[in-house]
Design a protein around this nucleic acid. Sequence first.
DNA 1: TTGGATATACGAAATTCTTCGTATACATTT
DNA 2: AAATGTATACGAAGAATTTCGTATATCCAA
Lengths: 125, 125
Amino acid sequence: MSNSKPTESELEILQILWEHGPVPVRFVHEILATQKAVGYTTTLKLMQIMAEKGLVNRDTTNRTHIYVAAISEEQTQQQLLDKFVAGTFRGSAMKLVMQALGNNTASKEELDQIKALIQKIENEG
Amino acid sequence: MSNSKPTESELEILQILWEHGPVPVRFVHEILATQKAVGYTTTLKLMQIMAEKGLVNRDTTNRTHIYVAAISEEQTQQQLLDKFVAGTFRGSAMKLVMQALGNNTASKEELDQIKALIQKIENEG
DNA sequence: TTGGATATACGAAATTCTTCGTATACATTT
DNA sequence: AAATGTATACGAAGAATTTCGTATATCCAA
């Protein structure tokens, strides 16, 4: 369980690692490169730093190192969410929910899911 | 309409400006100082930079300058929210809503509000 | 086995953000 | 009027983050 909070660039890399299991640097870099102009060694360096920080683990058995996220997506998201709510919505999670709901097209299925969750919360409370 | 995205420190100041209308630097600083150790000239400098960037406006008629936020709270929150959803939840606003709902104690009133909003969305769609 | 492609390591420049010291001017009090 | 308090301006140090050049090793194909 790492305590380091990922920077913005590190988070971009974590996203890729979360989505596509253990992969080499080159793989991460190629996805990253479609999102923004960045050199290969930059990506490499970032991932090396992340390894030092304990944000990722890597298998260095072979010449091509294989990287995998060392922190869970859910836990990281929750941490960042808490911080974001505090920083941007002055601690009001509900205000955030309202804004997110109001400004994004949610499918019927998603709305149903949310309704179900609310139902569940109401029953528990 | 400013395009600058506020940094974290700038956001802290914007929050104070949003909450307490037009105020002098000293006022902002005193609130800030209750949240973290920071020198007065640091706060001043930040607010001067924000003025340059167009994030705040100031009235320099008198010796004590009076600052006010130049960008709206709602618009800024929406911008940051979009970015946050993209960056942390891979673009899934619903995933964020679910997580925010699941991990924060929402009052009955708040849940009712959300249900009403969902109702409204469903009717419009 | 030699040349080209591709890998990691490493150092350091470049950029952005944060912090604060110091200079200077105006206001207030004594 | 002098001393003291409080303002802004400004420059630049410090810290964190991002970027990439270069060195070097390994793999693979001709």
